[in-house]
Design a protein around this nucleic acid. Structure first.
Lengths: 211, 211
DNA sequence: GAGAAGAGCAAACAGTCGTTCACCGAGTGA
DNA sequence: TCACTCGGTGAACGACTGTTTGCTCTTCTC
């Protein structure tokens, strides 16, 4: 096994930086980024207020860092969803299951993304939009590689991909809003998402002959 | 023509209440409800901080009132969209146009709704969700009355209606994010929304034979 | 026209806020 | 080993916060 691989100096700095991110994320489950206080965050992280400036110049910077962290864990989910060959129904079903599992495992991250996607900090909104765009592009590429996409133009595939992504993001947001302790509500949200994805996919199948 | 119809006492009270709502809405274009300050709002409305309590016990109460006001203007839009008989393509096109016009006319209201739909104040989130639910129910009823809905169950119609509503709400949110002075971006958002609605509608047409 | 009601005000309350500053002490690199 | 870098500290700053209190002055009610 390898050693820590990091000089203790940098390691400690990264650790308290992470403490700041974790503390902020915890607080952001109940409020929005614009209402977050610098002292509040440092209190939650267990450091002095002034130490904040050693890591971020601004609470907005911390917000952007949180976006990167959130999408970092999302990328694993995306990689799991992207399986080139499989029955369409299976892909849909597995996508919904994976999103559900991921929301359960990273509730705070999704809560943050849902809240700040149209929140009050422009730089954070832009960061989220950019990450979602690259997600949409990846999905559009995957869709393009499938035989069902014969006769589809690139813009059409992009629009379809965004529709899929939006449904999944709204599903995640609904799960967050339902709370973690309501399996019945969660189940109905997931079956609804399943049906919406199926409807869209039926539309996709007959699109070229009805466009 | 009729007189003011209102005792001057109540009229004045309603006027300053409206000034509070207007001022808050103006501030909420750049921040979120949880970060809104009571003094900030009263300053914007031109009254003393203490006078706030004559109208609302709480900033959350003001938020709920803003939800009602926002959906009040939305209801006019919904009534316009609901036209029993028309070609499906026409309905889609007209819906997108109406949403676009309504966003342009009531930008601040949509900005508020997009931001607080998953924002930090639970009572406001609940109020928005409730209004959206009743919107979904109305649309589902309209859809049920159409001949294309033969063979559809009530839950299926509800799911479809929610999908339509979500697309329209996300379209509005995208328009807000693009800003009022970018006609090119606005046009591409609207054509994307149009295509998404068409794809869903194709799915609807072939749903019963592919479900 | 007298008295009650109530919308709005200024002032004061104890807190909290973001930011700056000099300073400490442990890790770093020669 | 010695100078140095630098993450973290505690104190202090003025500004701003939500809420309460007692008070005006207009409007309503009888």
């Amino acid at each position: 096994m390898t050693e820590d691989e990091l000089p203790p100096r940098r390691a400690r700095k990264l650790a308290t930086r992470q403490a700041l991110l974790d503390g902020a994320l915890r607080l952001l489950e109940q409020q929005s980024l614009t209402s977050l206080g610098l002292r509040e965050v440092t209190r939650e992280a267990g450091i002095a207020p002034a130490a904040f400036y050693r890591h971020f110049g601004d609470l907005g910077e911390l917000g952007v860092a949180l976006v990167e962290e959130s999408f970092g864990s999302l990328r694993a989910l995306i990689r799991d969803i992207r399986t080139p060959e499989a029955d369409t129904e299976d892909v849909i079903r597995r996508s919904v299951d994976l999103v559900a599992a991921h929301v359960r495992a990273h509730r705070a991250h999704f809560c943050f993304l849902a809240r700040e996607r149209y929140g009050g900090v422009a730089s954070v909104r832009a960061a989220i939009a950019g990450e979602l765009d690259s997600f949409v592009r990846e999905l559009a590429d995957d869709l393009a590689a499938q035989p069902e996409s014969e006769g589809w133009s690139a813009p059409e595939l992009s629009v379809l991909a965004r529709l899929y992504v939006n449904v999944l993001m709204l599903t995640a947001a609904s799960m967050i809003e339902a709370g973690p302790d309501d399996p019945a509500a969660e189940q109905s949200i997931l079956t609804e998402a399943l049906m919406q994805l199926r409807m869209i996919t039926v539309g996709r199948r007959y699109w070229t002959e009805n466009r």
